[in-house]
Simulated scan of single mutants.
Amino acid sequence: MKILLVLLLTFSISACEADVKLLGTKIVDAVLFSPLEGHVLLNGSPASGAEITRIIKLQGEEYSEEKFKADSHGHFKLPLVREELELTPLNQFLASQRIFVQYKDEEYLIWNFGKMDTDIHSELGGSPIDLTCNLTDELRRVETPRGGLMTICHWRELKEHR
């Protein structure tokens, strides 16, 4: 009886793996975090030398944590993060994006988003022009074409990319 059960379980697992392979996996060049550039301010003044931490989780697992510094004008630039991934129709892509700013012994969450597609600049539907993050602003929800972004940042307009 135990042998029959083991054989049935083995057959079931093999059949499931075969079904996934039949559905087709594909290799995707996935953008985990689009490039982001802007200014960090505190009470309207540049947060000179502020430490910016970008944390990315991929499919719920820790992926990366990078640190950057704002210049003397509060300007920061976060580069593009992309990864080649193997996806099946049965799994949903998810990159969790968070940005924290450490300034004058305080930590501020300035960006929190769950990216569920692999396209560049899909977080906002374009790249933000004149992105400004004032650390004294309240965290707010911004509806985007791909979901809700929690942020303190503001932008004048979005540049579309085709």
Rank of each mutant, 00 (worst) to 15 (best):
E17K: 13
C153H: 12
N134S: 11
V101P: 06
M116Y: 07
A30F: 02
A70S: 14
L23E: 05
I129F: 15
W155Q: 12
L8G: 13
I13Y: 09
N134A: 07
R140T: 09
G148N: 06
V40P: 00
H39C: 05
K69M: 10
K69F: 14
P128M: 05
K57D: 14
C133S: 01
L8Y: 08
Q92Y: 04
E138I: 00
Q97K: 07
L149D: 10
E157C: 09
C16A: 12
L139T: 06
E107F: 00
F68N: 12
E160Q: 13
W155A: 12
R162G: 10
G38L: 04
I99Q: 05
L124H: 04
T136I: 09
H39F: 14
E107H: 00
P89Q: 13
D29R: 05
L139P: 02
S72V: 03
E143F: 02
K159C: 04
E143L: 06
I152G: 08
I52Q: 01
T53S: 04
Y108F: 15
R162C: 03
E17Q: 14
E106W: 07
T144C: 06
K159M: 13
P145R: 04
N134L: 11
L32F: 03
V6G: 02
S72Y: 05
Y103D: 09
V142S: 03
C133N: 05
Y103Q: 07
E61K: 13
L87G: 05
R54Y: 01
E83Y: 07
E160S: 14
V6T: 13
P128Q: 03
S127P: 01
H154N: 14
R98G: 02
G38E: 01
M116W: 05
E143H: 03
V81W: 09
V40S: 01
K26V: 01
G38H: 02
F100C: 04
Y103C: 12
L131R: 06
L85I: 15
F33D: 06
E65R: 15
A18T: 08
S72M: 03
E61C: 00
A18C: 02
E66C: 01
F93W: 08
L36Y: 05
T88V: 03
D29Y: 00
S127G: 06
H154Q: 12
S72I: 08
V28D: 02
I13T: 14
A50I: 00
D117W: 07
T118L: 03
C153S: 12
V20D: 08
E66S: 11
E61V: 01
Q102L: 15
K2F: 07
G147A: 02
S72T: 05
Q97N: 15
P35Y: 11
D137H: 08
E61L: 10
E66P: 00
G74E: 07
E83N: 08
S12D: 08
D29F: 00
L41P: 12
A70Q: 10
T88A: 11
F100N: 08
Q102W: 11
L23P: 00
E37Q: 15
M116D: 10
I3T: 14
